[in-house]
Amino acid sequence: MNRITRSKIIDQLFKYFGILCTSIGLIMLAALLINVFSDGFGRLSIDFFTALPSRFPEKAGILTAWTGTLWIFGLTILIAIPLGVGAAIYLEEYTRKGFLSNVLEINIANLAGIPSIIYGILGLTIFVRTLRLGESVLSGALILSLLIMPIIVVSTREALRAVPKTIKEASLALGASQWQTIWHQVLPAAFPNILTGIILALSRAIGETAPLIMIGALTYVPFVAKSPLDEFTVLPIQIFNWISRPQAGFAINAAAGIIVLLGIVFVLNGIAVVIRQRARNKIKW
């Protein structure tokens, strides 16, 4: 009997250990947020959003950074969504299982696992030097598009797969062509899930730093980018720049920049979660 009681006690203890471990992540997240807010919240003001970078921490702002992030965001949407969704439709609806589809599949899984900095090396060589796009917004957006494309492909394929076969078959039986079926039936049905995947991928792109450092986005840019071929900087890089300065004032700026960046990322993630929940509640296949 003694041994049984002991196992039961150990079982209970493990339960509390499980709760502890689960809360470690939450505690860390809370510590991070509290720290960043207490350091940086006082620095947030309209001036902080409208000021250019400066040598003096009190005068420096994130105007070039947030406009650069907006540029990158917009261009990445334009490039990555058609490419990613298009590739996913091809792989899911047009290829038959076989050697080629196997190769494509393994390739995409591998692309998703390549460190982001390697995409930076690729972009530096291909976009910046070979295609002579320079250290521009366009180069940055192209790199980030390639980086998040595997994520979009994987999530879009899952969304397409979740659409019941019967819908497709009914459409084809009525005489619709394959593309008509995809465009009028499959895509609308899969749309919420596709959108969720895209938003999560974009939120990843917004926070990426390393590949953009590779193409020289850390250099001092004293103006707001006006065309896709202008030099630029983005929020994470401005934050990195401020973190690497020794003066305490810049650490405060970095914290304030982080509040803005986290705000964007959390809003995007929140939207994605809401869309997914709504779709789940609505669909009754």
């Binding site: 997240l29 960043v36 939120s203 926070g207 730093t209 990322v265």
Partner: peptide, 24 residues
Amino acid sequence: VIKPVLEILAAVPTVVYGFFALVV
């Protein structure tokens, strides 16, 4: 409830974690 909250840990940009490592 807890799963999406844990996912947030993976969504935080790495530069933010870097700041946290250095400053906290």
